[in-house]
């Protein structure tokens, strides 16, 4: 089960001459919940945008299976994107469409299904995220947390093999954010989905993270990688410890023993 799903090799992220991160090397395994951690502004979201092909890497390569994403032609790129679903920070729902139309959009693009089936699929996806009955609402008519969940329903519309989340719990109350974690775990267990999450929400990092990388803005590269709980227990880097223990200096823990 532990075959690599995404492989990142010597990836350098840059806007023009301004390098954000360099020499990133990591592997996301099939069925893992992979967390991209790091302080604000260290390039977590930029890394995510590179992984889903919104930006071209300055150097290095990203492989989905054996296929390189930056070197893929239009058709291969479509194939990769069809296997992935993305939830953006604010949900990114199309504001001129109802929730049901938003969710049905990727499905109707890929397959020619009758309207009734599309509608039923949309209702089912909305039910999965706890939004039954909101099919005919417009995004502006529901709350921010609900918009985010509707965005998730759209991201999982085509049963993707890989799901990307950009700050899924930002702006959610603790209970909703816990429910979202449950939902992610449930999707992973039911569909064996690989999940890549950018977050700095510690509760979910420890609750659901199987593996992850820790990026740093000053070193401009990966400081540590591994399961978050293992990082907290074993990593001796002060930055990582401070992050994972919420600023309480974790380095002291190691100095005393």
């Amino acid at each position: 089960m532990n075959e690599p799903c995404i492989r990142v090799e010597n990836l350098t992220l840059a806007y023009g001459d301004f390098v954000i991160q360099r020499d990133l090397n990591f592997v996301v395994n099939q069925g893992d919940i992979f967390i991209i951690m790091g302080g604000s502004g260290c390039g977590k979201s930029t890394l995510l945008r590179h992984l889903i092909g919104l930006h071209e890497p300055a150097q290095g390569d990203i492989f989905y299976g054996a296929q390189s994403l930056p070197n893929a032609d239009a058709r291969q790129r479509r194939r990769i994107l069809q296997r992935t679903g993305v939830l953006f920070q604010s949900g990114a729902l199309l504001s001129g469409m109802t929730l049901a139309e938003n969710v049905a959009l990727p499905i109707s693009e890929a397959l020619n299904l009758p309207r009734r089936t599309l509608r039923e699929l949309a209702s089912y996806k909305l039910a999965l995220v706890g939004l039954s009955g909101f099919e005919d609402y417009y995004p502006a008519e529901i709350s921010g947390g609900m918009q985010k969940r509707a965005g998730l329903a759209r991201a999982i519309a085509l049963d993707p093999e890989i799901l990307f989340f950009d700050e899924p719990s930002a702006g959610l109350d603790p209970i909703s954010s816990h429910l979202l974690d449950d939902l992610i775990l449930n999707l992973r267990d039911s569909l064996n989905t690989t999940v890549v999450i950018v977050t700095h929400e510690l509760a979910s990092i420890f609750a659901i993270g199987d593996n992850g990388v820790f990026l740093d803005a000053e070193e401009k590269t990966i400081l540590a990688q591994g399961a978050p709980s293992r990082l907290l227990a074993e990593c001796r880097l002060e930055k990582v410890q401070r992050f994972l223990s919420r600023g309480a200096s974790g380095a002291a823990k190691f100095e005393s023993d």
Partner: peptide
Amino acid sequence: PDGVHGLLRLAQAVPERSDALR
């Protein structure tokens, strides 16, 4: 299949908001 159980449970976890229906 096993995966179906979890999804069925999830889909029925939150009852439909009948007041929300339009």
